[in-house]
Design a protein around this nucleic acid. Structure first.
Lengths: 239, 239
DNA sequence: CGTGAGCGTCAAGATGTCGTCAAGCTCGGA
DNA sequence: TCCGAGCTTGACGACATCTTGACGCTCACG
């Protein structure tokens, strides 16, 4: 397990290096964002521990650039965890966060959790069904009650993100950056228009949506509400 | 079960040692903060009982330093009218408190409650279950009896803090600062409103809550009420 | 027995966000 | 050049959430 620890405080790096090496991990360190990105570009790294308050390019920017070519797990180490900081880091692609000062065993638990999540390759079914709707991702084909529904490229991109993350709350920023690009994190007006388009084409009653739910102030959520005719499935009871 | 008891009164230590050893615990003791930290750095300890009125570095400082590298449960022993110290200790990371003089079985009950969360240790389960309730942190999805429950952003932030710290007594100030930001440490009125909202949406009987417990004058506590198969336990009567 | 502090509850106003419609714009193909 | 599909942008009413205040209750204390 190769871990890259990024922090501008040498003491933190020392502690991390010692604790992780004692558990058999191979640890490399970087004192700032530039060095971190260099290392990530060159060497294999299985997990990144990243301080947010870095000199030079900040931790958020590091994640943003890193995510353009790599999906290596990133755990953020932040001093404060007021809502805003936390959400920003997760928005740009961090996998989890730990507040400093942190307990070593908590960090280790988060590391295991993040790696497990990444490791499990979710076999996403290529075709998603909900009520009388059918979304065939590979064919880029959507049918409602057997009839094909025409979607524009942008509409389909947005729908694809939603159905690939059923039940999960997707933030405005995340959706915008995935569909329109990293520079469009703030244009939440686009979302409103395109969500409205999708609902008009897909929902039974666009006025009171049951597929694309809005979570005010945060984002949207795809609810595969197919539990009506299948009462036996008590979903993934991972016990 | 290895317990470290820290107190400057030898008599208290004697009583603790005797009572805990009789229950099969392995007890070590320390008369002051420095010794306590030395022991904690060297040996495995499963739980700490810590007096606040210590000579040298005080109990609060011990917790603060300890929390920078360990999350071992800490139960504070405080004298009756040291309300302020008690709250400060919880703010910096203590798990619970017992006021001196205390009944031994109350202390033991608190120990069990605090340890219950360590009982299923390691990876924090990304999805928390309690009775017919299910909280999926990554998805930001809460379901009760299979039905999704809608929470506002603030409600969810508060719930997340609670379920991530089961059994732990969380102070008003700590919760306020985490959810609303550092400047909101005093606005405990917000907490009352939002705790009421959560109880109304999640509790079976919002009038007599069993998930979110009130600790008058101090804070709130999430009871990991997974004791379904143990109906005999009616403890939380701490009056 | 009276009093006050802390808690739970309700409701109403303020604030910001969302849904909707429609018009202007861009760009590729006929 | 013209046309049309799709994308952007603006305006406005509707709505959800947050905030704030008032009130009744319980409990500890004098």
């Amino acid at each position: 397990m190769k871990v890259l620890a990024v922090d501008d405080e040498p003491q933190i790096l020392r502690i991390l290096r010692a604790s992780l090496a004692a558990r058999g991990h191979e640890v490399s360190t970087a004192p700032n964002g530039e060095t971190a990105l260099d290392i990530l570009a060159g060497a294999d790294v299985d997990l990144v521990l990243l301080d947010l308050g870095l000199p030079g390019i900040g931790g958020v920017e590091v994640i943003r650039r890193l995510r353009s070519w790599s999906s290596v797990p990133v755990i953020v180490l932040s001093v404060r965890d007021a809502q805003a900081d936390k959400v920003t880091a997760l928005d740009v692609g961090a996998d989890d966060y730990v507040t400093k000062p942190f307990a070593m065993d908590e960090l280790l638990a988060r590391m295991r959790a993040v790696l497990r999540r990444k490791g499990a390759p979710d076999d996403e079914p290529p075709v998603v069904r909900a009520a009388d709707l059918e979304v065939d991702l590979p064919k880029r084909l959507v049918t409602k009650a057997g009839r094909p529904v025409h979607l524009t490229p942008t509409e389909f991109a947005l729908l694809e993100l939603l159905v690939r993350n059923p039940g999960k709350l997707l933030t405005h920023r995340w959706l915008l950056q995935k569909v329109w690009g990293d520079a469009y994190g703030e244009e939440s007006h686009y979302l409103r228009v395109y969500v409205a388009n999708l609902r008009k084409k897909l929902e039974e009653h666009p006025g009171s949506p049951s597929l694309i739910l809005t979570e005010p102030g945060v984002g949207y959520r795809w609810m595969a509400a197919e539990s009506d005719q299948e009462p036996g499935r008590a979903e993934q009871d991972g016990r």
